[in-house]
Design a protein around this nucleic acid. Structure first.
Length: 610
DNA sequence: ATAGGGTTAG
């Protein structure tokens, strides 16, 4: 059998990604002693890489008596493809230091890509300099990868300079630049480039749409997706679908989410792993945890993202025990948790006050899985400790952690001091928090309550001065509710709605019944300086109450009322919604800025902590 | 023989 036959077979195998065939061909090559004939070793290396067998590729690479720039390009690319860009960068210097081989344009492209996936600007710039001085400095492919590298590192001007230096711009160069602008939230630049792009393919549309989703412009992304469908672009690859499912998740819009889901089914991508993962997350974020569980239950294959999505979903919906039992199942089937999984797990423990379980998980994360805790892990853990009254331990953790605590961290501790009546510590924390010049209006409410509780009026006065000086604008609160196919948005204090009279009398009626059942309005959640009566009136017109009233009037009787709020639910509305759920015997689900509240028979899934 | 753009969980 001639060597050319084997080369052909290997290339076929690389294209079809069939690792077992690769190994069989390798064995046959050794038997026929062809495995040393140029270019067989390099082709084998490439095939192993493409089949996902990096370790075998590396073994082969180490044994090679003679390595040229093609061998190097292949092994570096293999590591990129195996999602090990770190190894690409750590191996690269040995190319000239040990083998005396200079990088060519293929090698440059691979190394720049590795810098790009790691966000390693410093090394990226070094490679750029080396490329600039090399004989390959005119190569447009390397320049495209530089565009991507700078854009991913947030250096849009450098990316643009690289883009402008490309002599003959391909659709790939354009896509890299558009994606860079979109991901960085430079919406108008992204749109302008996209308009100028002469031929738009699925890749270019996907780059713009997914970039916008990542930078929080999910509404724009959604409308673009509709344009793309109208243009008749064939969705031959499901990646754009995962972005658009993600857009529905970000916006917490269940109806459009369901429509996208049915499109996914029509196009035949429902069983694609990362699409199912995105769907699980979308349903959880749209408050339909049952649908999320259903998708998860029907998945043929589940990876760490699938498990983490459902664990985080269960935790956020107040189902802590479920989250923890899912974790046991996940470990039992041999899936290794990662740092995101532990965020969900510690969050779950914090929800139900499982202190020792949370401590054990925090330790296990470090000791069993070698994950060093991030600020987010510390924040979850601190939340757990302080909520359950372990204030001293929480304060020790703050002192010993390798991060500077931020506003939410101190605020969580302060809220716990208030809740557990530790005035001494509360005042210390409050003073510290105040010195950080907080940004979040809710921090001021908390501080004001703590100082007022301790009768420290001069501090309350100072707080007011500070707020006036900072002139921070309170974001207007709004709540959305879907009735059938239409969405209604309610702003706080809204008085122009066509159904306002009916909503008002319903709320009045419910208010009377609530007071009979022992409800006392808690106006400490109203920030502004005003008369007591006026404060109560303000509470009465909070947007979530308007949305609930509308839902009770318009939604099909007996169905779950789902509301999405942009800010956090205030403490008084939280009490009111619990009362309403028991008075009208309806389940109400509110997704606020930080968590999910399932109100049912007078109780809430968040255990009254939020 | 080898390279560059779009992908899900906090």
């Amino acid at each position: 059998m001639p060597a050319s036959h084997f080369l052909h077979q290997l290339q076929l195998c690389a294209r079809r990604r069939t690792p077992s065939t690769a190994k069989r061909l390798h064995a046959q090559l050794i038997k026929t002693a062809l495995h040393l004939c140029v270019p067989v070793p390099n082709t084998l290396l490439d095939t192993y890489g493409k089949c996902g067998l990096v370790e075998d590729a590396l073994h082969l690479f180490d044994e090679m008596p003679h390595r040229d720039h093609v061998s190097w390009a292949s092994i570096l690319t293999a590591h990129n493809q195996a999602n090990m860009p770190h190894r690409t960068l750590s191996m690269f210097p040995a190319m000239f230091e040990s083998d005396g081989v200079q990088p060519d344009h293929f090698v440059f492209a691979s190394v720049v890509k590795a810098c790009s996936s790691l966000g390693a600007v410093r090394q990226g710039k070094q490679v750029h300099a080396r490329f600039f001085l090399s004989p390959f400095c005119d190569d447009d492919v390397v320049k495209s990868s530089l565009v991507d590298m700078y854009a991913k590192c947030g250096l849009l001007d450098n990316a643009r300079a690289a883009f402008d230096s490309i002599l003959s711009k391909s659709v790939i160069s354009w896509t890299a630049m558009i994606s860079g602008y979109a991901r960085s939230g430079k919406k108008s630049d992204a749109f302008e480039m996209f308009e100028r792009l002469p031929v738009k393919n699925l890749f270019s549309w996907t780059a713009l749409i997914s970039g916008l989703v990542q930078s929080g412009h999910s509404v724009d992304a959604f409308y673009l997706f509709i344009d793309m469908r109208r243009e008749g672009i064939h969705i031959v690859d499901p990646l754009v679908l995962s972005s658009i499912v993600g857009a529905c998740a970000n916006l917490a819009v269940l109806e459009p989410g369901k429509q996208v889901h049915s499109l996914v089914i029509r196009l035949g991508y429902e069983s694609c792993l990362f699409i199912s993962n995105a769907l699980v997350d979308m349903y959880a974020k749209c408050s339909d945890i049952l649908a999320a569980k259903d998708i998860f239950g029907r998945m043929h294959r589940r990876d760490v993202v699938s498990w983490t999505s459902i664990i985080v979903g269960a935790a956020q919906h107040g189902q802590a025990e479920k989250a923890l039992s899912l974790y046991d199942e996940m470990v039992a089937v041999g899936i290794k948790p990662n740092e995101v999984t532990f965020v969900g797990l510690i969050y779950a423990c914090s929800h139900v006050g499982l202190v020792s379980k949370g401590r054990a998980l925090f330790r296990s994360m470090i000791e069993d899985y070698g994950i060093s805790p991030s600020l987010q892990h510390y924040t979850c853990f601190l939340d757990l400790l302080s909520r359950s009254g372990h204030l001293g331990e929480a304060s020790n953790v703050i002192d010993s952690m390798p991060f500077d605590p931020d506003e939410p961290t101190w605020a969580a501790l302060l809220s716990a001091c208030k809740h557990h009546g530790d005035t001494q510590m509360g005042i210390r924390v409050a003073d510290h928090l105040l010195s950080l010049k907080p940004e979040d209006p809710s921090t001021y409410i908390l501080l004001s309550n703590v100082y007022a509780g301790a009768r420290m009026w001069e501090n309350v006065a100072e707080l007011r001065k500070l707020m006036a000086a900072r002139e921070f604008k309170k974001k207007p609160g709004y709540s959305c509710i879907d009735i059938g196919k239409e969405t209604q948005v309610f702003y706080a204090g809204e008085t122009s709605h066509p159904m306002k009279d009916e909503m008002f009398s319903l709320l009045k009626e419910l208010d009377a019944e609530m007071r009979r059942r022992g409800y006392v309005p808690d106006s400490s959640f109203v920030l502004h300086d005003m008369e007591h009566q006026e404060k109560e009136r303000q509470l009465f017109w909070h947007s979530e109450r308007l949305a609930v009233a509308y839902g009770l009037l318009k939604a099909v009787p007996g169905t779950v009322i789902r509301i999405v709020k942009n800010l956090r639910v205030c403490g008084d509305c939280h009490t009111v919604l619990k009362f309403i759920s028991s008075i009208v015997k309806r389940d109400i689900v509110v997704r606020d800025a930080t968590r999910y509240h399932h109100f049912s028979s007078g109780e809430c899934s968040c255990n009254d902590f939020w």
